[in-house]
Structures are given as structure tokens and as C-alpha cells.
Nucleic acid binder design. Structure first.
Lengths: 226, 226
DNA sequence: TAATTAATCAATTTATTTCTTTATTATATC
DNA sequence: GATATAATAAAGAAATAAATTGATTAATTA
């Protein structure tokens, strides 16, 4: 490929974007940002990394165009550059699941172990909702729920779930979701609920994919708890 | 993220797959493989790299599950693990185009310069074909055309195009395609044809995307010219 | 059987990444 | 104005990746 050809320049940029996705830490950052915007400070805490390190990773994501940011007071708030970033991550995950034996193994042995009757697709959930016989359970932390969630969902963070079982309506199947297809919260929730005799299934993806697909969402005041 | 959690393992794998895409050389390899299977020897020549170097890059792509291979005689033939690999690359390119200013700039100033009246989508081409008033021109090298191409297409490699203009039917618009959305062959073909007074446009993608989308293709005997 | 060729392996050098530490800048608060 | 805090920048150490070279392994051909 000629060194200064437009194709070479474009391919180098594609490679830069792919490289930005080539770190599990950055993928985790993107997963958090997919829930809503956050300050770098908070992201660092969520990752359990230093502020400097987190700042560097975000610099890389910004250089790749995947994340944008703006300063408000002394905080820099970061967000995904657009919903297509969620699509990209989603396709990356699905392609990996299809072609990488280890991922396939993890998914089938872990994420679907309790889900022999398969998890529910977004479209299936929509149809169930028309019947009105479903409880949508958002098991993410409260602040993520407050930023935005699926309409009609109730929020019980996974850590409080066993203590707050009484809040779940009787006689209805529960559909649990969390941060994404590979987030374990919803999986754990389904396990717990079934142990308690409650009929429960996992939504196949999480909030970000729901939003990126153009389905309706409810956004609360983004209590940007910095 | 806990070190040995299934999520961490999965994310590490996702990162490995993304990293495999994080090199313009490997992206170029994938582009060639998207046309059909090839021996490592031939791939090395196409890239202008050494055999050892190419072998190493392919090792990386195989480890990421994106490429598979099998030995026939003394040749190792490589191919994409599946059409979803084309989808992944496609989404990577489109997301980059959307969010990276440099790519957007290249695309608009280079790939669309002669295409103010926009390039044709796959679906649009299908509809045009029903009218029967279109010449589909495949400007890839002959061996790539022979491996597989869009039904009804005629093949004139870009290098021979100016000498073989007489083979193009009169009075019909020409739709040119090549290896992908960022391959310059089709662009150059359209430029040349228009200069000669022939009505011509670019297909927005290339052969790989056509195939990955499930549209019909014609596969010739894979003359594996090793 | 010897020689050739495709591919991999192994070792080396060079270049990039990643993470940590320390210093600096900007904003907010005391 | 002094101090605390969020973020970046800069510099260094450790780990990882890339390209080159030479040796090794198969399969083919002479």
C-alpha cells in the first residue's frame, strides 16, 4: 500500500480506532460511559485505577474519536461520541463470541447456564410489554439507573436485591438487565430470583444496546455525582 | 473488575480481537482475504512484506479467531473465519468515518469527489438490475474476480481499463466496484470513465460487503495461483 | 537422495504501550 | 491570598509488539 495514499491514511486511522478498543480497561471505561456521562474522577474510582492512568486511557479514546468530553467547573465529563460506538462494541463482542472458543465457552457455561430457555431479545421484551405481564428489573447501581433506563423498569441494585425482594410484584415474570450482554449483574439477579422461586430471565443485552437500537428511554436529571 | 471473573476473561478476549484489527497491515491482509482465500506466500507478495513477517501477522489474526487456515500440499491457505468478520471490519470503518475527522475528510474529498451524486448502495444496485440498464464493472485483478464476484459483472482490472474501454456496452450507466468501501480502484475507474464521457458511479462498498450481506455471488474455480 | 520452496520458529533489535511517580495547571473553596 | 481538588503533562521502568535475520520443518520437485 503506497505510504501516503488516502487508503493508507484511512487504514491507519481504522487501526487506531481498533487499537483504542484493544485494552480491557478501555473496554470497561466504554461500558461505564455507555450508561451515561461521568467525570474522569468517578471513572477512575469505578475502574479502581489511578486518576493519571484513567486520564491517559481516556486520552487514547478521545484521540480515536470514540469519546468526547467537556469541562464543567473543575470536572471533565466524558461521554461516548455517539450511539454508533455502542454498535461497534456490540459487533466486536458478537464476532468474538462467534469465533473465539474461550468466549463461546464462557458465554454458554456462565451467562446462559441458568438460562437454558434462552434470554430475551429486545424485540421480545417489547412484545411482552404489550401484554403487560412482565416486571422489568434494572439491577445497575442507583445512579446509573437515575441517569437513564428502560421505561417502566424498577431499580434494585444487585447488592440490595436479596434484601428488597418484597418490592418485586408477585405473579409476574421478571426480566432483568444490567450494563450489557457481558455484565454479570443480570445473571446473578436471575440466579438469585430463581432460587427464591421467582420466575426470571435475562435480557440478552443491557441498557446501552437498548438505547443504541433506538428504543425509548427515560432519562432522569443526570445527578452528576462527581 | 475482579481478575478472574468471566467478564474479565471475556473482555480480555474482546481486547485481543480488537488489537488484532489494530494494525493497518493486518487490516490490509483482511481486505485481501475478504476477496477469497489465499496462500501466505501470495499474501506476503500482495503486502510487499517478507514471508516471515506476514506469517507472524497471520498468526495474530488466527489467535484472535478472525482467520482460519489449512495446509494443502506445501501451501497454507488462509481465509476469514466467517462473514461476520467482514461485518466487524465494516462497522469499524463506518464508525471511524463518523467520528474521526481525518477519515471523514478523506472520504469526502477523495472517495466522493467525483461522486457528488452519491455512490450507489447495494439495494439500489439490485433495483437498477431489475431494469436491466446497468453495466456492473469489477475492476479488481483478474484472479480475485475469478474467485468470486457479483453475478452479471464484467471484469476489467483497473490497470487495463483505459486500453479496454471498447468492451464496455454503450448507452448504459456503469457501476464500478472493487475490494471495499476504501479501495481506490473503483474511484479511479469512475474518474477515468467519466473523462471518456461514460456515465459511471461507484458502488458504495465492495465485493466483501456484498457477499457478507447475503447477496448472490458467482464463485469460479478458485484457481489458487500460489 | 538432494535440492527447492512454503511456512514456522527462535532470537535480536527497535519501537510502542502501560503503569507509576512527580510536577504543573486550572478551578473551587476556605 | 492560601489551600484543596480534578485533570493533564512529563519522565522513567517494565512489559509488549513489530520487523529483521537466520535456522528448522515439511512437502515438492529435480
Amino acid at each position: 500500500m503506497p505510504e501516503n495514499s488516502p487508503k493508507k491514511i484511512a487504514f491507519d486511522k481504522f487501526a487506531q480506532v481498533a487499537s483504542a478498543l484493544g485494552s480491557s480497561k478501555r473496554l470497561e471505561l466504554l461500558e461505564h460511559l455507555a450508561q451515561g456521562e461521568r467525570s474522569i474522577d468517578v471513572l477512575a474510582q469505578l475502574l479502581g485505577s489511578t486518576l493519571a492512568n484513567t486520564s491517559q486511557h481516556l486520552k487514547c479514546l478521545r484521540a480515536a474519536g470514540l469519546v468526547s468530553s467537556s469541562k464543567v467547573g473543575k470536572y471533565v465529563f466524558c461521554r461516548l461520541s455517539g450511539d454508533s460506538v455502542i454498535d461497534l462494541i456490540s459487533v466486536l463482542q458478537r464476532t468474538s463470541e462467534e469465533h473465539v472458543a474461550e468466549v463461546k465457552e464462557i458465554v454458554s457455561s456462565y451467562f446462559n447456564k441458568c438460562d437454558k430457555m434462552e434470554s430475551l431479545s429486545r424485540q421480545q421484551l417489547i412484545e411482552r410489554l404489550k401484554g403487560g405481564t412482565v416486571t422489568i428489573l434494572d439491577v445497575r447501581p442507583e445512579d446509573e439507573f437515575n441517569m437513564a433506563h428502560i421505561p417502566g423498569a424498577i431499580n434494585i441494585p444487585i447488592k440490595q436485591l436479596s434484601a428488597r425482594l418484597s418490592e418485586i410484584p408477585d405473579e409476574q415474570e421478571v426480566i432483568a438487565y444490567c450494563r450489557g450482554a457481558y455484565c454479570v449483574f443480570a445473571y446473578e439477579a436471575v440466579l438469585l430470583l430463581r432460587k427464591k422461586g421467582i420466575k426470571a430471565r435475562r435480557l440478552e443485552d443491557g441498557y446501552p444496546e437498548w438505547k443504541a437500537d433506538g428504543f425509548p428511554t427515560v432519562s432522569g436529571t443526570p445527578e452528576q455525582l462527581a
